[in-house]
């Protein structure tokens, strides 16, 4: 580990994270988390989702407050555009995850960040979701993330930050690897 300088502050409490890492190595059962969201259809393609509770460290937790997210489709799909599309929400998740990783790794490596900006773009052939061509997948055919980072570090060190962030990113993993998805339904 590079020596940490007192002056470096990206607002990340690295000591707490390293402490948790140490503690959870000894108590892996406490590392089991459950992330949750609930949602309710509003109208048309408009849905409102709510995030508030999660489970981890052996007990239930609540965010400081609940958060609501509206998803919808744009007007060119004859929708009302009451929120971002669900696929854009996936990009939101990836941006948040990778950027949090960059800040954390930078703090741990003693690199002061001044600005971290990312643009994300995902290609999608909507022949898939419209059922026009069965060979076209529904989801993204690729995702491109472009970071612009201003920091007290060399180009190579900044590239290493972003690479390490991808290596430790949950959303990057979720998007780049298959995940078993189980959906059930009951009449309510």
């Amino acid at each position: 580990m590079q020596t940490q300088q007192i002056s470096i502050d990206n607002g990340v409490n690295v000591e707490a994270i390293l402490g948790a890492r140490e503690a959870l190595t000894e108590a892996p059962e406490a590392a089991q988390f459950k992330w949750r969201a609930t949602s309710e259809w509003v109208n048309g393609t408009h849905t409102r989702a709510h995030v508030e509770n999660f489970f981890g460290l052996g007990e239930e937790h609540k965010h400081r407050q609940g958060f609501d997210y509206d998803t919808d489709h744009p007007e060119i799909f004859a929708s009302e555009d009451n929120g971002s599309t669900p696929v854009e929400m996936v990009l939101v998740g990836l941006a948040g995850c990778l950027t949090a990783g960059v800040a954390t790794v930078a703090q741990n490596r003693g690199i002061q960040l001044r600005s971290v900006k990312a643009s994300l773009e995902a290609g999608m052939d909507i022949q898939g979701i419209l059922g026009i061509d069965g060979d076209v997948r529904n989801g993204f055919d690729g995702v491109r993330v472009s970071f612009v980072i201003d920091a007290d570090a060399s180009q190579q060190d900044i590239e290493a930050l972003v690479a390490q962030s991808q290596k430790r990113s949950a959303v990057f993993d979720i998007m780049s690897n298959p995940t078993d998805v189980h959906v059930d339904v009951s009449k309510g």
């Binding site: 590239e159 290493a160 690479a163 290596k167 990057f172 998007m175 780049s176 690897n177 298959p178």
Partner: peptide, 24 residues
Amino acid sequence: LAGVRDGKLQFSGSLRNVCQLADL
């Protein structure tokens, strides 16, 4: 190799990053 489903091998989309990590 990320998984096997219905007789198909599934590979991770992380190839670029693992190569970048190794190059760096």
